[in-house]
């Protein structure tokens, strides 16, 4: 674990693997050190924002190191089931890139057990970890200007559901009618880091 200064109100904790990010995130959420303001996970790091009036960087670093041993990924409390119509515009291209048939791509995507690793790129856009390595494909060389909300997509090690209409470069394999982003709710999405996700055929 490396603990790096990130201005006067945040520390960036760098670890070796996503497992440890999720473990530390769970551990700090369960048992927050004094002055903790907010936690922002990413693939190899956890940003820990703190109130410098309540805790100093060195004391925070001690608190973080003290939790290192105790971090373990807790079993996800909730599982979100996402029904998908596998008719995405890039399904044929993904099949070609992976050397699988379209049916095999779909079967492997359905067989995966996923977890929201972190959110980024756009509000509510959750990077889902757990994708079958056979389905790791590059982003499209030319991003699309408009991707409809609910598009189920692949890029690199991750799969995701576009929560809102947006531009994007991921490979589209399907679409869900499930509304994953609702501004009338607070928080507006159920795809919080650590949540388990399973895809089923719509």
């Amino acid at each position: 674990m490396r603990i790096l200064r990130c201005g006067r109100r945040a520390a960036l904790v760098e670890v070796d693997a996503l497992e440890q990010v999720l473990g530390l995130h769970a551990c700090l959420s369960e048992d927050p050190p004094p002055g903790l303001v907010q936690l922002i996970p990413a693939s190899r790091t956890l940003l820990v924002e703190y109130d410098p009036g309540r805790i100093g960087f060195d004391q925070l670093a001690t608190e973080l190191r003290g939790r290192e041993a105790g971090t373990q990924v807790l079993a996800a409390e909730r599982e979100l089931v996402v029904p998908v119509s596998y008719d995405g515009a890039d399904l044929a291209e993904v099949a070609e890139l992976t050397g699988l048939t379209e049916d095999e791509v779909v079967a492997r995507h359905l067989a995966g057990r996923y977890r929201v690793a972190f959110c980024g790129f756009a509000p509510g856009f959750g990077y889902l970890d757990g994708l079958d390595p056979a389905l790791h494909v590059p982003r499209r060389s030319t991003p699309r200007v408009r991707i409809p909300a609910g598009s189920v997509a692949l890029a690199g090690d991750y799969t995701a559901v576009y929560p809102r209409e947006s531009p994007g470069g991921w490979q589209l394999i399907g679409r869900t009618e499930l509304e994953l982003w609702d501004l009338a709710n607070y928080p507006p999405t159920a795809l919080t880091p650590g949540t388990a996700v399973r895809f089923v055929r719509a």
Partner: peptide, 10 residues
């Protein structure tokens, strides 16, 4: 660099 959280003023 794998994407990581950034702060205001970074």
């Amino acid at each position: 660099l794998p994407s990581e959280a950034v702060v205001s003023g970074a």
